[in-house]
Amino acid sequence: MAAVEPVVGEPAAVADLGGERALLVADVHAGIEVGLRYERGVELESRADERRDRLCSLIDETGVDRLVVLGDLAHRVGAPEGDEREELEALVGAVTDRVPLTLVEGNHDAGVAAAFAGDDVGVIDPRGGLLTDRDGSNPAAAGVAVLHGHTRPDPSLRSAAVVCMGHEHPQVRLEDAVGGSRTERAWLRGPLRPSVLDGEGGTDGDGEPAGSGPELVVFPAFNERSGGTWINVEGGSFLAPFLPDGLAAGDAYLLDGTRLGDFRRI
Rank of each mutant, 00 (worst) to 15 (best):
H75T: 06
P80E: 13
G111V: 04
R127Y: 00
V144T: 08
G63Y: 13
E84P: 04
L70W: 05
G149Y: 08
E87W: 02
D120R: 15
L70S: 02
N107Y: 06
R76N: 12
A74D: 02
Q171S: 09
G63L: 04
G63I: 10
V104S: 05
R127P: 00
R127E: 13
V69P: 00
P80R: 07
V163P: 03
T102R: 12
R158T: 14
G129Q: 00
M165K: 05
A161F: 01
E87N: 06
A160L: 04
Q171H: 14
D135L: 14
E168P: 06
V121N: 00
N138M: 07
E81C: 12
M165W: 05
L157Q: 09
D125I: 06
I124G: 01
G118K: 01
D135K: 06
L130A: 08
D60M: 05
S137Q: 14
V104Q: 02
L88V: 03
D109S: 10
L58H: 03
G63K: 12
R66C: 01
A114R: 15
A161S: 15
R98H: 03
T132D: 07
T132V: 15
G111D: 09
E87I: 10
A141H: 06
G149I: 08
L91V: 09
S137G: 15
R158K: 14
E89H: 01
R66Q: 04
D120Q: 15
R85G: 00
V144R: 02
S159A: 15
P139A: 11
P80W: 12
A94N: 04
L70A: 11
P153K: 10
E87R: 05
D133F: 04
T132F: 04
V68N: 07
V172Q: 08
D72Y: 06
D65F: 05
G128V: 00
E87H: 09
L73Y: 03
D83F: 14
P170K: 10
V104N: 08
D97L: 12
A141I: 03
A141V: 09
A115Q: 08
T132Q: 13
A79L: 13
P153N: 12
R152F: 14
P170W: 09
